[in-house]
Design a protein around this nucleic acid. Structure first.
Lengths: 210, 210
DNA sequence: GTCTATAAAGTGATAGAC
DNA sequence: GTCTATCACTTTATAGAC
C-alpha cells in the first residue's frame, strides 16, 4: 500500500467511519468494519489512532464542523434567486421559515441515514463523560447555525425578533430534532407537511414586521 | 435458586434490562450485565428468551405499554386540585400547556437516564427492520397520550382545537422530543424555561376559546 | 428448571517481520 | 509505514450435569 501521511489516513478513516455509522449504526461501526470500508488493514487503524474512542471523538468533531445543512433560507452569501412561484418580492417571515424547513426535510428524505447517524452520535457522546462536551459543542453549533439563518430570514422579510435570537434558535433546533425523529419513525409525509406548517407558524410568531 | 415461571422470569429480566439500559446504555446492556442485575445465571436468560434481540423487542413493548408520563395536565380521571397560586378558576389553554410541559421537564430532571433510555431504544428499533414496527408503535402511543392530554386541556380551559387533535399531538410530541434532547445535552434550565414558554404558546395558538 | 462449563464468533489492540 | 498474525478478552448462545 502507498505511504499515506498519518493526517490523511485519519481523515480517510473518519470519513469511512461516518459511512459505516450511517449504514449500520454506531454499535456496528467496529474497527474492522471501518478499515474494511476504508480499504486499510487493521494495524493501519491503530497507527493513525490510539483507540476506537479517539476515532469516534474525532468523527463527532468532523460531522459538527462540516455541518452546514441550511436548516433555513438561502445559505449566507448566496444571492436570493428570483423565484417565479413567489408572488411577492419580499416573502413573509412565516413563508421563509416554511421554505427553509421544507429544504431541511427534503434533505432528510434524500439522506435519512445521515440524520440518523447524527442523532446516534449525539447519544453516543452523551453516554461517555469524556465525550459529553462533544455533544455540547454539536448543539452549540446547531444553535449558532439556526441563529444565523433566523437573522437572515428576518432581514429578508423586513422583520425583527421579539426575543433574543438565541432563544428563538433553540426553539427551531428543538422543533427540527422532533420533526426528524417523527419522520424517521413513520415517514409520514402528509403529517410532516402539517407539522412543518405549525413549526413555521410557531417560530414566526416570535417575530413581527419591523 | 427458586423455580420461577418462565413468564415471571421474562418480566424480571425485562425490568432488569431497563435498569441496565438506563444506567449504561443499550450497547452496554449485554446479557451478562442484565442477568447480573436480575441476580440470575446466564443460562436462565436463554431459558426465558431465545436471544438478546427477543429481550430487547420485549423491552421496547414494555416501556411503551407502561408509558403514562403525563406530558400534559392532570392524568385522566384525576380531579383538578384547587391550586392556590392560580388566580382564575379556569386557567387559559396556554397556562395549562405550560404547566403540563413543566411537569414533564420536572420528571426529566428527576430521571434523565430513563428518558435517555427511551430515546436510545427508539433508535435501536430504527436500526433493525424487524423492530422498526416497535418504534412506530412507540410513537403511536406517544401521539395517543398527547392527544388525550390535549383533549383534556381543551375541556379544562373551555377551548377547542382549530386543527385535528392528532396533528396538534404530533407537534406536541415533536416539541417534547426536541426539548428532551436539548436538556440532556446542556442541562440549561434557564434556556429550557424559555423554550417551554415558547412551546406552550405555539401549541396554544392552534386552539381558541370555544 | 437451574446450574456450571464451554463452545464459537466477535472485539480492540499489539508484536514483529518487512 | 504497512502488513500478517495473534493476543487477551468479551460476546451470545448452548451442552449437559444435577
Amino acid at each position: 500500500m502507498a505511504r499515506i501521511s498519518a493526517a490523511d489516513r485519519r481523515g480517510a478513516l473518519v470519513r469511512a467511519a461516518l459511512r459505516v455509522v450511517a449504514a449500520r449504526g454506531v454499535t456496528q461501526a467496529t474497527t474492522r468494519a471501518i478499515v474494511a470500508e476504508a480499504g486499510m488493514s487493521l494495524a493501519s487503524f491503530h497507527y493513525a489512532f490510539q483507540s476506537r474512542d479517539e476515532l469516534m471523538a474525532e468523527l463527532i468533531s468532523y460531522v459538527v464542523d462540516q455541518e452546514t445543512i441550511a436548516v433555513l433560507p438561502v445559505p449566507p452569501g448566496e444571492k436570493t434567486a428570483p423565484d417565479p412561484t413567489a408572488p411577492d418580492q419580499t416573502a413573509s417571515l412565516r413563508q421563509i421559515l416554511r421554505t427553509g424547513l421544507q429544504r431541511y426535510t427534503d434533505h432528510l428524505r434524500e439522506d435519512p441515514l445521515r440524520e440518523k447517524a447524527m442523532l446516534e452520535l449525539t447519544q453516543y457522546a452523551l453516554r461517555s463523560p469524556s465525550m459529553h462536551h462533544l455533544a455540547v459543542r454539536q448543539y452549540d453549533r446547531y444553535h449558532a447555525l439556526a441563529a444565523e439563518a433566523l437573522d437572515s430570514a428576518a432581514r429578508q422579510s423586513g422583520s425583527v425578533w421579539l426575543h433574543p435570537v438565541d432563544d428563538v434558535a433553540r426553539l427551531l433546533v428543538s422543533l427540527t430534532d422532533g420533526i426528524t425523529i417523527a419522520w424517521l419513525v413513520d415517514q409520514n409525509d402528509r403529517a410532516t407537511a402539517t407539522l412543518l406548517d405549525f413549526a413555521a407558524e410557531s417560530v414566526a410568531a416570535l417575530g413581527r414586521a419591523a
